[in-house]
C-alpha cells in the first residue's frame, strides 16, 4: 500500500471543501480523480502531500502517518505536478535538477545530475536540456515539470490536471508517458482529470467526487453512464470505438 487516506476533511473558513474521503492505492495504480469544477479535486491532491493541512482524517504514506513526516521526507516519497506552474527563466536541466532538492544537502552530486538526466531522457527532453523553460511550448513545459517530479524518485505521483491545457497530440503523449512511468517505475499515481475519455481509457481506479464527497469509487465498474450523469448533471452514453471506450454526452 503506497497511500491510504482515511476520513479526510478540509475546510476553508467560509465553506467545507472535502468531507470523509477514504481510499487507498497500491503500486502500479493509476487513480483518476473526477468531478466538476470546484468538486475538490485539486484540494484533495494538496491535502495528500501536505501543501494544505487537512482538518480531519489521516493520510498514510507507505504506512507512515503524513503528519509525522517532515516536508523533506514527504518530498522524497511524493512528486507533485501542480495545475499551474510559473515559467521563470531557467533552463530545462536546472528545472529538472530542482527535483533533487529534497536530497541535496549542500550541492548537487554527480548522482543527482545523473538522475536528472535520466528523468529528462525518460520524457525525451534531451535536446531541450539547455533551452529556457519559457521558450518551450505548453506540452513540452508540462513534460519538464513531470520530469522534475520523477527526479524526486517518488513512490507516488500527484498530477493536477496534467493534460488540461494541451492539444490532442500532447494530451495523449503526456498521459501515455504517465502510464508508462506508473507501470515501469512501480509507482502509484493520483491524477485529477477533466477528460473522461482519457480517464476511462488509461486509468484503472476511479474516484468520482461530488460536492466534496466521494460519490463512487472503485475500478472500471463504477464508470457507468448513471454515475457519470449524476456527478456531471449531463446525460452520457459509453460506447466503444475500435475497442477504446468513449464517453459521449447525449
Amino acid at each position: 500500500m503506497i497511500l491510504s487516506v482515511n476520513g479526510l476533511a478540509f475546510d476553508y473558513p467560509s465553506r467545507s471543501v472535502l468531507q470523509n474521503i477514504s481510499f487507498s492505492i497500491c503500486k502500479g495504480n493509476f487513480l483518476a480523480v473526477l468531478g466538476v469544477n470546484g468538486a475538490g479535486k485539486s484540494t484533495l491532491l494538496k491535502c495528500i502531500n501536505g501543501v494544505l493541512k487537512p482538518c480531519a482524517g489521516t493520510v498514510l504514506i507507505q504506512n507512515d502517518e503524513a503528519t509525522q513526516l517532515t516536508r523533506r521526507e514527504i518530498a522524497k516519497r511524493i512528486g507533485y505536478v501542480p495545475q499551474r506552474h510559473e515559467h521563470f527563466s531557467t533552463t530545462v536541466f536546472d528545472a529538472v535538477l530542482l527535483g533533487r532538492k529534497p536530497y541535496i544537502q549542500w550541492e548537487a552530486s554527480r548522482n543527482d545530475l545523473e538522475i536528472a538526466q535520466k528523468a529528462l531522457n525518460m520524457l525525451e527532453l534531451e535536446e531541450y536540456s539547455l533551452r529556457y523553460l519559457n521558450e518551450l511550448s505548453g506540452g513540452e513545459q508540462q513534460k519538464v515539470i513531470i520530469a522534475r517530479a520523477l527526479a524526486q524518485e517518488p513512490d507516488l505521483l500527484l498530477l493536477d490536471e496534467p493534460t488540461s491545457s494541451l492539444d490532442l497530440k500532447n494530451q495523449l503523449e503526456v498521459i501515455r508517458v504517465i502510464k508508462r512511468i506508473i507501470q515501469t517505475g512501480h509507482i502509484g499515481a493520483v491524477v485529477s482529470m477533466h477528460d473522461l475519455n482519457l480517464a476511462i481509457r488509461f486509468a484503472d481506479k476511479f474516484i468520482l467526487l461530488s460536492n466534496g464527497e466521494i460519490f463512487a469509487a472503485g475500478g472500471l465498474e463504477v464508470m457507468t453512464p448513471e454515475n457519470i450523469q449524476r456527478v456531471y448533471s449531463t446525460p452520457v452514453k459509453i460506447t466503444e470505438v475500435e475497442g477504446i471506450p468513449v464517453v459521449v454526452p447525449v
Binding site: K46, N49, G50, V51, T70, R71, R72, E73, I74, A75, K76, I78, G79, Y80, P82, R84, H85, E86, F88, T90, A95, L98, G99, K101, P102, Q152, L158
Partner: peptide
C-alpha cells in the same frame, strides 16, 4: 522561484 506550491511539494 517555481511557485509556492511547488516549493512546498519539494520539501
Amino acid at each position: 522561484d517555481s511557485g509556492e506550491e511547488t516549493a512546498k511539494s519539494l520539501g
